[in-house]
Computed example of a mutant assay.
Amino acid sequence: MNRWLAAIPFLFPVLVAAQEPAGPAKAAPQRLTPEMKAKTEAIARALDGLAPEGFARKGVVERYTEANLYEKIDGRSELFQAYDVAGLAFVTFSRPDAPSRFIDIFLYDMATPLGAFGVYSVERPPGSKPVAIGDAAHRGGADLFFRKGRYYASILTSGPDEAVQKAATALAGTLADRLEGKAADLWGLAMLPAQGRIEDSVQYLMVDALGLDFLTNAFTARYRDGESTFTAFVARCKSEANAADVLARYRAHLEEFGSLSEPARIEGASVLLADMGGGDFDGACRVGNVLVGVTAVKGRDAAVKAMTFLLKGLKVPK
Rank of each mutant, 00 (worst) to 15 (best):
L311G: 04
F90H: 15
Y250Q: 07
D301Q: 14
D208N: 15
H253S: 00
A18F: 07
A89M: 07
I73K: 03
A142F: 09
K39E: 15
F214Y: 14
E162T: 09
L88H: 12
T157I: 05
K182Y: 03
A183C: 02
K129Y: 06
R95Q: 14
K312V: 04
N2P: 12
F90L: 08
P13V: 07
S77A: 12
T308I: 05
G226I: 05
K129L: 07
L186W: 08
L79K: 00
P9S: 04
R222V: 12
E262M: 02
K315I: 01
A284D: 07
E267L: 01
L144Q: 02
A56Y: 07
Q81A: 01
D208K: 01
A98K: 12
D213C: 00
F309K: 01
A264F: 10
Y204A: 00
T295F: 09
L192S: 04
D280F: 15
E71M: 07
T216H: 12
A67P: 03
F93M: 03
L47S: 00
L291M: 08
R45L: 14
K39R: 14
R139W: 14
A51Y: 06
V304M: 02
F55L: 03
Y108D: 05
A248H: 13
L32E: 13
N242R: 10
R150T: 07
A248S: 13
G188F: 06
K129T: 14
E199Y: 07
Q165S: 06
V290M: 04
R236C: 00
K312A: 02
M191E: 04
E62K: 11
A82K: 06
A243V: 09
D301T: 13
V131D: 08
E66Y: 14
E62W: 09
L50W: 12
A42K: 14
A232Y: 05
